[in-house]
Design a protein around this nucleic acid. Structure first.
Lengths: 188, 188
DNA sequence: AGGCACAGAATGAACATTCAGTCGCAACAC
DNA sequence: GTGTTGCGACTGAATGTTCATTCTGTGCCT
């Protein structure tokens, strides 16, 4: 086996995304990972540790995706579209990871501190972006938290609904329009 | 005991909101409800049935709250602020119910059909509102699902964050501003 | 007496975790 | 090259716990 630890993480992600966190026994994870039940415990102390490790892994990949080709020296609007466009495309392309993240964030296993810590890089970038916009008089004079939450909430909910009930939306949902709506929401 | 069934539903809601759906054994529910473990089964066939009944109950109360003093003959903007203002105030005032709803919607116990059915009344109203707005040329020419999802996602995420980390927001978050952002997002 | 509502102990299933044993392999001796 | 020893990785059956659900007995009301 190349990297059993990675294999176990992947199996866990697959299982949780498919069956949900509560319906995901270690026995099934080990079966999916192609190893014995005990083997998991060579790599992770407890199930909780396993889930936490998975969370870190997820955030890392998400952060990387969001910052892809992001350039802080570009005009405001380009940066906004780049960052949130990256985000939206990523969660659309990886619905399993989105569902997984949602479940982890809602579960008591992952506490607030961990989330904040894992998302630090992304936070720094978005806050810089919002501060710039406010200095330029383009964004509404509200706290970064608010502006961020509105944008994030809109996009995550769209991707979620689109995944849950694609038939409710037309053949295609224009990404440009969605980002435009977010932009309109926070601009003056 | 006045109404044991209501008491059990209330106890279940409290327990799930506090400890989460997966960490909520029947034994604790019965203890909280002040009855024996077996008594619950006089009112609900299984735990799953109990949770479903709770869900119906929640949606009913939410619908009632949203439509409070809603008048379809009022101007568009007033209706929008009334409907979504009601919604936002309700979830702010009942964070337990919001958390509960989120967990139920994410759990496999509640399927899509049930959600749609329970939310039918609310759906009819919002779609009417959005259709009117589009006919008047006030709202963007996008599907109702999209306009609705953006608004809903923004507000639910705000109330969630506000509950999880109130310290991140100033002493007060202006409701008017939030509804204004949603309005700006969907208007032309 | 008869029946209804209830309590809480008993039951059995599902699960996380542990542990005794197996396997493969590398180092070493001859 | 061949036999031997030791060790770390691995397996999956066994363990103990937690839980939903059942069941038996009790008390109350008519």
């Amino acid at each position: 086996m190349i990297d059993k630890r990675q294999q176990i993480l992947q199996a866990t992600a697959d299982m949780i995304a498919e069956y949900g966190l509560q319906a995901c026994p270690m026995s099934k994870i080990s079966a999916r990972a192609g190893c014995g039940a005990g083997t998991i415990y060579r790599y992770f102390e407890t199930k909780e540790e396993l889930v936490k490790a998975l969370f870190e892994d997820l955030i890392e990949r998400l952060t990387e995706a969001c910052l892809h080709e992001y350039d802080a020296s570009q005009p405001l609007r380009d940066r906004f579209y780049r960052l949130w466009g990256n985000y939206y495309h990523y969660v659309l392309a990886n619905p399993g990871q989105r569902a997984l993240m949602e479940q982890l964030l809602a579960s008591p296993i992952i506490c607030n501190d961990q989330t904040d810590c894992a998302l630090r890089t992304l936070h720094l970038t978005t806050h810089q972006l919002l501060d710039d916009g406010k200095h330029q008089g383009v964004f509404k004079d509200l706290s970064n938290e608010i502006l961020n939450t509105i944008t994030y909430g809109s996009l995550i909910m769209m991707s979620k609904k689109l995944h849950q009930s694609p038939e409710k939306f037309g053949t295609e949902v224009p990404v440009e329009a969605l980002l435009g709506m977010c932009w309109d929401a926070i601009r003056c």
